[in-house]
């Protein structure tokens, strides 16, 4: 085939969807259609299978080995989990208190850090940004074991403060990176206009720069909040057994074979994640997102 005819053939070939390609590979026609259907089914099972299992467990009161489906359905375990004296409420309170404190602590560091990284001519700026990634890059367990050791010596182990510190360590990468991008996306002439009209640098920051960067800051707060809510290993090594967050409760219930409690807790943890992701999608503008990590 000559060069020219090759390009012509390329141009003539219509764009094929993945489904159409699979159908063709299976020989087309009825067989092809069946093959496509089968692939979709496999995909659906892969995605929804575990979720269905989880949902079933939340409403299963009796479910023994040989049976494919639970023997008895009901909301008995919901009542037990959400009993005012139950573990779930204690865990929920721990989780929320720790998440809120983590967000406050993270942002109080990330806002000045992000502003400095975005606006000041700092040497080794890229290196500083990279340092915040380090806790995520190293294997989690050795890092947490060492932190736990240090906290034991400082008599911090098993306190809410210790857990907040560990969660902050993980949240900082989101908070600082997104805050840096958010401040970087604020048009400098907006600040110049405020200075020009008579505002000092501090007033300019609080009335112009911070409000302009606020959508990005809120998005980073949500990421930190979700990260804290879901965090397990750090909490386990630094907080257990005194601090029992929702993931800890879920873990313990799962280990004890109490799948109903574990599933209900998982479902509860899913709610803020889904809600907040919808919010984040609204707040995080494309230009901020594109600048993350730069």
């Amino acid at each position: 085939m000559t060069q020219a005819s090759f390009w012509q053939n390329q141009a003539q070939a219509p764009k094929q969807t993945l489904a159409a390609r699979i159908g063709d590979l299976a020989g087309g026609g009825v067989v092809g259609a069946l093959a496509v259907g089968f692939c979709i089914l496999l995909l659906a099972i892969a995605i929804f299978g575990p979720l269905t299992n989880l949902l079933l467990w939340t409403v299963a009161e009796q479910w023994y080995f040989p049976h494919t489906f639970p023997a008895r359905y009901g909301f008995d375990f919901w009542a037990r989990v959400f009993h005012p004296d139950g573990n779930a409420f204690v865990s929920l309170r721990y989780s929320l208190v720790i998440a809120v404190l983590t967000v406050i602590f993270c942002l109080s560091l990330a806002i000045p850090a992000g502003y400095a990284l975005a606006r000041l001519a700092l040497p080794a700026r890229a290196l500083i940004l990279l340092v915040f990634l380090v806790p995520q890059a190293f294997p989690n367990i050795p890092v947490h074991i060492n932190i736990a050791r240090v906290f034991y010596q400082l008599d911090l182990h098993g306190t809410v403060g210790a857990v907040v510190l560990v969660h902050t360590l993980h949240g900082m990468v989101y908070a600082v990176w997104i805050a840096t991008a958010a401040f970087g996306a604020v048009d400098k002439t907006l600040e110049e206009a405020a200075r020009d009209i008579g505002a000092g640098p501090i007033r300019t920051f609080f009335t112009i720069t911070l409000p302009s960067a606020m959508p990005g800051i809120i998005a980073s707060a949500i990421f930190v909040f979700l990260e804290s809510l879901d965090e397990f290993t750090g909490t386990y090594f630094v907080g257990a057994p005194e601090i029992t967050t929702l993931p800890m409760l879920m873990f313990r219930a799962g280990m004890e074979g109490n799948y109903q409690v574990a599933s209900i807790t998982a479902l509860v943890l899913l709610v803020p994640s889904v809600l907040f992701m919808i919010v984040v999608e609204r707040f995080l503008r494309a230009d901020v997102l594109a600048a993350v990590g730069r």
Binding site: T189, L190, A194, S212, M214
Partner: peptide, 9 residues
């Protein structure tokens, strides 16, 4: 300013 620099918030 050339870009007006109005405060969008």
């Amino acid at each position: 300013f050339q870009s007006y620099a109005l405060w969008p918030h």
